[in-house]
Design a protein around this nucleic acid. Structure first.
Lengths: 390, 390
DNA sequence: GGTATTTGTTGCGCTTGACCCCAAATCTGA
DNA sequence: TCAGATTTGGGGTCAAGCGCAACAAATACC
């Protein structure tokens, strides 16, 4: 057990991690503000920042012209050349992006594919794209790792994709493949879990320590939990599969559409598309079509899905007493069709006290969510121990 | 912000806490084993232990006669005179016990009451009992705090009992009342949550970092979650109220008994008592009566409750991917009526991967569970910072 | 009874963050 | 325009805590 936690070295590392984490999460900050935020001594922060500059992880900029008394404090920012590569393989396309330690996304490509991508193809595509970028847009960049957001079950221990039904992968050793192809450290995670992480750090769940995130995709419903400010993985890393839950129905009006009763069969994008007679449209188009539709069946189906969603959320709220529920993907459309109604339905099925502090919001990060989440997973080792991963 | 986390003092405190926590949780241990467990240096552990001895929290005993080569190492044990008081108010009785830092329960009393106890009565009863014990059995003891396990919703921030339906309390400032009456630091928690904590630390969930605990009481079903090795409180501290969840029914055979569909209406001790025609018996008697009954209605009701319980557990397993599910109270009776059937029913309603590592067990601590959980809550500040709370 | 092994003990040195004092940079007000 | 106030960085010093190494003690094995 090389758990150097209780030692001096451990303190130093944790402090480095804390400072780097602050500039990463909160953006550029003056040294004075870092001192205040960390509770450390000025001189300590000075040496920590110097060390991070030395390691090429942060840069110090001339002080901002702040209209305040006193000596201006230099601004510490994440070094823009430090990048992680984020990859999101989907059925019809693979999205690859470079995400900076400072949060920006300098390059992003969506590569359409004709056939279902294999894990091997993803590894090769990722490696080729990185090589191309390194020769072009990302010259001089320092790529610290690759993060992949996969629509399927990912074993946390070794980045094995146990089952990705839509990609038709099973037991694919994705992490090993991409590591071999790129020579970089690789993190693999479930897309919805990484989305939850991203919303927690930079989106609608910013600063919230206990939240439930549910995302509605074309294929089904996934989710993620933040408890005590940390993403919940569970034993194998499969936590968050709310789509497979069976919500209970409180009132006769809460009716089933199908036979099975699993959430993602009841609350589904396909049913919404059906009811307005569309196929293959993006989310805003679907939302607009639903909003403009005069067909009572459309409003009815939205209401039905809201109530089933509410039952699931109520179960989660009773069990976890979060302070926030975040809904992404088409669940945002369902929720926004009548946010008050959804909240009331959840409230009706929860203990009063448990619902008290709960807010229901839609996700904030949009299309960058998975890129940010995947990059965050790739950056995690660096942030946890800035000097070890140099 | 007096967050001394990144400082030397913080390291020292954390190390003290780690050592004290080890002898508390794992029992008496040689200094050699403590050094191995903490990863610290021999000399460091020596000074830490000396400091804890000085503070009167641990004692050093002559080495155990171990048949191994080398110099024998003195055994470090929790000081038996350090105690916490645990209190569990119920409808018909109040249980009070003194629980040692070393885990033993030197005194325990169950005080029957004729009328529903009020919060004020609990405070006075607790203070009077402590005084009596201090003059008698607990002479020379050092009582570091009081922990109360309450069958109701407890606001974590201030120990306010928001709602305890069976005691008919609402918004009772229990922590303040007991603190005023005893002059001791007081912790208040939900009984089921504290039970989950106890099972996690000393019972069926020992060493398991992710578990779901459900307890069936006379009045309803409560629960608690351990995630990342920590008890989940949620924002307000109300997490774990699985009894109010509405499980979904997967098959036509999974049928409702009542109208509402809340778990604790469907899966209830009263229904089990009904079916064997008993009232007011203890758990072993009920379990025996159910096992011996020839009435097919009894087996049927047990099977029905198992399936509803399975649906709830399946939802929890999908969402949290725990490695263990612990069932206490009459839920243990329901589960043990056919543990395999329960496990199969859960498996049928979960994702294969999420269920993979899941084990279902019954609780292990029996009647001491709530006393241990409440005492643990009272001891928490001492364990977290051994020298601050002297 | 000698040797190997394990562990407590002691003293030293290194690392690290706190503290102090001074210098620098800016605002304020006369 | 200039002095005072205010805030912050920088360098030196200090103290605290842990690791390390050498030595001593206690046990088992041969």
């Amino acid at each position: 057990m090389t758990d150097r936690a209780g030692t001096f070295d451990g303190v130093h590392r944790r402090n480095l991690s804390k400072v780097l984490g602050l500039v990463h999460l909160e953006g550029p900050r003056s040294r004075a503000r870092l001192t205040a935020a960390t509770g450390l001594n000025r001189s300590t922060v000075a040496t920590l920042v110097a060390e991070l500059v030395e390691a090429g992880l942060v840069i110090e900029q001339p002080p901002d012209p702040t209209n305040r008394v006193g000596r201006p404090s230099p601004v510490v920012a994440a070094d823009p050349s430090v990048l992680a590569i984020a990859v999101n393989p989907e059925v019809d396309a693979v999205t690859i992006a470079a995400v900076g330690l400072h949060g920006a996304i300098p390059v992003r490509e969506r590569i359409e594919v004709d056939v279902l991508p294999t894990p091997e193809a993803i590894a090769e595509l990722t490696a080729a794209t990185i090589d191309r970028w390194r020769a072009g847009q990302l010259q001089g960049a320092r790529i610290v790792g690759v993060g992949l957001a996969v629509p399927g079950l990912v074993r946390a221990a070794d980045g094995l994709v146990r089952w990705a039904p839509h990609l038709e992968w099973s037991d694919a050793p994705l992490r090993a493949l991409v590591e071999a192809a790129t020579g970089l450290p690789v993190a693999v995670g479930n897309d919805a879990s990484l989305g939850a992480h991203a919303e927690h750090l930079f989106g609608a769940g910013r600063g919230v320590d206990d939240l439930v995130y549910l995302n509605g995709g074309a294929s089904g419903i996934g989710g993620g939990l933040i408890v005590h400010g940390r993403l919940v993985g569970g034993t194998g890393g499969y936590a968050g599969e709310f789509g497979q839950n069976r919500p209970g129905f409180a009132e006769p009006g809460d009716r089933r559409a199908g036979a099975d009763g699993v959430l993602e069969d009841e609350v589904s994008r396909a049913r919404l598309l059906d009811v307005v007679g569309l196929t293959h449209v993006d989310e805003p188009t679907l939302a607009a079509a639903l909003a403009e539709s005069d067909d009572p069946a459309a409003a009815d189906e939205l209401a039905r899905q809201r109530r089933v969603l509410a039952a699931t959320l109520a179960n989660a709220v009773n069990a976890l007493n979060p302070s926030l529920v975040v809904l992404g993907g088409f669940l945002a459309t369902v929720a926004e069709s009548d946010l008050d109604d959804l909240a009331r339905a959840v409230e009706a099925q929860t203990l009063a006290a448990a619902f008290e502090g709960v807010e229901i919001r839609v996700a904030a990060l949009g299309g960058d969510r998975l890129m940010i989440g995947a990059a965050e997973a790739a950056l995690a080792p660096l942030l946890a121990d800035p000097l070890a991963a140099r």
